[in-house]
Nucleic acid binder design. Structure first.
Lengths: 302, 302
DNA sequence: ATATTCTATATCAAAAAAGTATGCTTATGA
DNA sequence: TCATAAGCATACTTTTTTGATATAGAATAT
């Protein structure tokens, strides 16, 4: 069976035109080199060298084989380098997931843009889905990293790290009495006791939904739920349509401003929207490790 | 140092997702296979596999390496195949030389055309030069095969084989008295005793030139040499210009017919133009062997 | 818990590669 | 032309590498 050693030896002999000199260069003796070359010729079934009184010369087949053998060696080196680059996270593919509400936080496009720039050879696959599906995706290895609001469900084997916490805003229809002529600087949660709430909730489990209800209870009332929107974005549409009020993370202010007044909560007792980063505990890829480190740095510098 | 064995083993493990099963497929035991894979990972410095409770899975680096390793194996196989094809004469380059007078024989273009068709992957390099240079080219390995008329000079290490013999024609100016109104069917050499001869001769030594002079002597006269043309083709131009007569191989009739009458020699005693094939005795290339065999066949069938 | 399924480790045997000594062929130079 | 040197091949030995066997260790599945 042909080995890379055979190719390396042959290339040396071809380049030197001389078995003894090639052996010197390879750091072995001449007889084993002669043997290896002959063994390879026997294996291929073709004479690659003409043995001359002084040195050797390539046959036509030898010339062709030399060129191809060099390519083979290069390809092996390329394979090794590609693996190393991939392990260093400079190459490969990286699947990043995020929940719809996290998608609106400016950190995420900033991270994606920055990572694309520093690791152009990594294919970033971005995928938006629910928290539950993100966690499952991580566990199944379909995702490498995910941004989510509140971790929930079975997070076995998943590392979760808090990145930041956002303040919450009250979203009111623009013509709501509480907004008045000039929107107030802030509003206390208790003043929303009689409002109808529009909240975002996924069937998969608790999330911001429960945090908000708990905060209302703490403020002394039990919120009346008017509607549960299927997607975070629809919540704001319903508020704009005047169907009720909602409480949303600050970063969502960027959206759908038409017809909505955003007012900070006064002394928001524990009512904050966290942003978490999640990744597989076991065997993170080089690119994932790199991305995580980069995210941490961006959060720190922010 | 990485070996092809490592790549083959790794590919098997990657494809099976299972060391034990891959070992079975490779016809070795599981422990050495595990060892070889680990040795290669150590060599590269990168984890290619994640060891799971049941079987193994590829890391991102492993996936990249798998694809590249497959290419490396293919390239090695390609190298071997290319060498074999070259040895069989199906690929490579082949330098064919011929003297100017041989170039006019229809066998040569026919051979070239036929060989191009049956061996399209062989690059044919055609080169016209003098007999002496052809022989030297063969000896130096610059040429693989040569067509020539009369072998001369130092032919050490050269195999020469007679392909065919052509009749000779007398070339006369169209208005020469011997041609008359209707050209005669043939003409005896002795009748040219008083003519001026225009002959082709290269400085390198004897050739057709001497054959012709010897034939004249045998016919009872010593030819008067009017001019020695540097190239076979110029001979005919000089004849057409009325400067004398010449004796040429039959196949040259195809050229420069304007102003020249070609008349066969009556009972041409030994006055024939041979065509020889010459090639290096030592280490003929596959393509050369193939070409030579093909030429012989074409001559036989002709 | 216990069996089962896999990979890892340790030790030994076999095979392959490298080393040493020397032979054989062919050119080179006195 | 004869001796010498250059350079590849062959024969044999030593070392290294690869593979086999036995068994441990980890983890899931029953």
């Amino acid at each position: 069976m042909i080995a890379l050693r055979h190719l390396r030896y042959f290339i040396a002999v071809a380049e030197e035109g001389h078995v003894t000199r090639a052996a010197l260069r390879l750091g072995i003796q001449q007889p084993p080199l002669s043997q290896q070359i002959r063994a390879m010729e026997a294996e291929i079934g073709v004479a690659l060298l003409n043995r001359l009184p002084r040195g050797v010369e390539l046959t036509e087949a030898g010339r062709v084989f030399l060129a191809e053998a060099r390519l083979a060696i290069l390809q092996v080196e390329h394979a090794v380098e590609a693996a190393r680059r991939t392990a260093r996270g400079e190459q490969g593919r990286l699947a990043v997931g995020f929940t719809s509400s996290a998608a609106f936080h400016p950190l995420i496009p900033a991270v994606v843009r920055a990572f694309r720039q520093i690791s152009p050879q990594v294919d970033l696959l971005l995928e938006e889905s629910s928290t539950g599906e993100l966690i499952a995706g991580l566990q199944k290895g379909q995702l490498d990293v995910a941004f989510l609001r509140v971790p929930l469900g079975d997070t076995a084997g998943i590392r979760i790290e808090a990145l930041l916490q956002e303040k919450m805003l009250v979203a009111l229809p623009a013509h709501h009495p509480l907004v008045g002529k000039r929107a107030p600087k802030s509003i206390a949660l208790a003043r929303l006791a009689d409002e109808t709430f529009i909240l975002y909730r996924r069937p998969t489990g608790p999330g911001l939904y429960d945090t908000i209800i708990a905060a209302c209870r703490a403020a002394g009332f039990s919120p009346r739920i008017g509607q549960e929107a299927p997607r975070m974005l629809s919540t704001l549409s319903l508020v704009a349509a005047g169907l009720g009020v909602s409480i949303i993370p600050e970063s969502m202010r960027r959206l759908d401003t038409e017809g909505i007044a955003y007012i900070p909560l006064a002394g928001a007792g524990g009512l904050v929207a966290p942003l978490h980063l999640a990744w597989r505990e076991a065997h993170p890829s080089g690119a994932a490790t790199r991305l995580i480190a980069h995210i941490r740095q961006m959060v720190r510098e922010q």
